[in-house]
């Protein structure tokens, strides 16, 4: 049986000031797939991370297993089994 790609998404604690954002495990082979699944139940939380077009907000950073993602538009960066996805605020946002 093939391993199911699965990521665990952890959100910056500063987001919790505005909206409950517990860590969530979700299936998917890309950042897009995992985030779509992890945020499917809370479109308001999704809008804190992604803009109207589904791009990563300009002053939000996403790291997968310690590396900042390269594709902030389509979120095509690969997610492996048991990957850790961190959603962080970028210091550029003030």
């Amino acid at each position: 049986m093939a391993t199911t790609d699965m990521g665990t998404v952890r959100f910056t604690a500063t987001l919790a000031r505005h909206r409950a954002a517990p860590a969530a495990a979700a299936p998917g082979a890309t950042v897009r797939a995992v985030l779509d699944a992890a945020l499917a139940d809370d479109p308001l939380l999704r809008a804190y991370v992604l803009d109207d077009q589904g791009r990563v907000r300009r002053h939000v950073n996403i790291f997968v297993d310690g590396a900042m993602i390269a594709d902030r538009v389509r979120l095509s960066d690969a997610v492996g089994a048991a990957s850790e996805i961190y959603v962080l605020q970028a210091l550029s946002g003030g």
């Binding site: 909206r19 479109p43 308001l44 809008a47 803009d51 109207d52 077009q53 589904g54 791009r55 538009v73």
Partner: peptide, 18 residues
Amino acid sequence: ELAAPAFSASGEADAPSV
């Protein structure tokens, strides 16, 4: 909090976002 006004997702790289 309610959903803010938003532009429809178009898939274009330079598409608008409120």
